[in-house]
Structure formats: structure tokens, C-alpha cells
Amino acid sequence: MRENPGEEDRNSGQVPKVRAEGFSFFYGKVEALRSLDLSVPENSLLTIMGPTGSGKTTFLKALNRLNDRVQGTHHTGSLLLNGEDVYGKGVDVADLRRRVGMVFALPVPLPMSIYENVAFGPRKQGISSKKRLDEIVEKALVSAAIWDEVKDRLDSSAEKLSGGQQQRLSLARVLAVEPEVILLDEPTSGLDPLSTMKIEELLRVLSRSYTVILVTHNPVQAARVQGEVAFFYMGELVEKGPASSMFVRPKDKRTEDYITGKFG
């Protein structure tokens, strides 16, 4: 597989890593995303914020096609990864999901050991050499800044870790399959402020070598992690720009209301 994620086409960068063109997504008749136009350059961090039901999760789950599991959905327009439609004909969904990793709101320790949690993805990909797996697991745990805390108990159950540790473990699990894009859906919503800070710090570091898309409904978090911010509202992208300017001078009234806490 890919040796160094992102490295090879780092400088060929005209094509954005992720791009939505007039992309709409429907659950039955509910239009959860409305003609979305959005692009995310490689190795950058985009924070999507918006009130509940604004389509943030839907966007993430369209990108890795987890939404395929929901019955009666359809989409129009296109959603591109490296310029190729993720809904294109020949797309191998399992491969797409390895390239687009996802961390969920609540930490999900799979019912197995810490080691096996991280090795899960690589194993399912067909890697079985113990030595290779050891390397991958260590590297992923180091990148997720949790190696020191778990290196002596890799074989104990992942369910015994604290919430914050479990969430970093989830991140390590994603990193182990060497994704190009990392999606995080409100990853800190169940964590204490300290664990939250650790994750945010980690995301800033990771965004140097991965394309990171973070979803939050907390404008303060969006401001803290910096990078680009997109504001979703009722399935629409209201505005998008660097955190530094959006929080100082929002262009849209709805954005202003949201960040000043008038709703959401």
C-alpha cells in the first residue's frame, strides 16, 4: 500500500484533496445536504461547525460512504477525493474507507485488546506478519500520542482505558491503516477539557501530514484549532474561511448569530 501518505503528490497540489461540487444528499425525501460546493486542500485542517441537524455527520459519512448502510438514500452532484468521484463506478468501498479514516463522537473500543484494536485495520487489509504489525501498531500509537501510556499493557482490554485514552486509541486505529484523510465527528464531545486539549493539539500536528476534517458544534473549538472553518446550516454551506477572519468578521448574519451563541 501507500508508503508515505500524502507525500507523493504533495507538490502536485492543484487538485484539492476533497472537493464537493453541487453535492446534495437525501435520506428518503429529507435533503440533508443542499448543493454543497466545498474544497479542502491537501494537508490542511478544515473544521466544520454548525447546529444539530445541519448535515455535518452526513457530509463525513458521504465521504467514506458509511451512509451506504442507510436504506433509501441517494445523492446528486459529485464528491471527489483526489479528483475522483467517491461514488464512481469502479470504487472499492473498503479501500476508500481505508483512505478516508473516521473517528466517532463517542470512543469505541472494539471488544479486544489495545494491540488488536490498532492492528484491526491492517489485519483486515491482509497484513499478517507479526513484525510488520508490531511496527505499524507502535507507529500509530506514537502518532496518536498514547504510546507511552499503553506500551506496557498492549494486551489488556481496550475497554479499560479512560475515555480520553480510548479516543486517542480510536485515532491510532485510524492512523494504522495510513489514511489520506482523517474525519473526526465531534471527537471531544464526551471528554474532559484536558483530554480535549490533547486531541486538539494532536490534530494540529496531524494536519501537517494528513488532510483533517473536524466536525464540531462548538464554535470555540473551531476557533481554538485554527485552520479553515466552514459553517453548515440546515444542509447548506453558509460560509467558509480561515478561523482568524471568520470569528472576527463573519460575512453572514447566520454565522454571526451562531458564533455569538444566539442559537445552536
Binding site: N64, R98, V108, L110, F120, K124, Q125, S170, V174
Partner: peptide, 13 residues
């Protein structure tokens, strides 16, 4: 169901 989502999201069949 989140277990399933997690596994699928890691590229498991």
C-alpha cells in the same frame, strides 16, 4: 451499531 460502523470505517468487509 457503532461497533459495526467502526469496523466498516476501517475498511473491513
Amino acid at each position: 451499531d457503532i461497533y459495526r460502523e467502526t469496523a466498516y470505517a476501517l475498511g473491513a468487509s
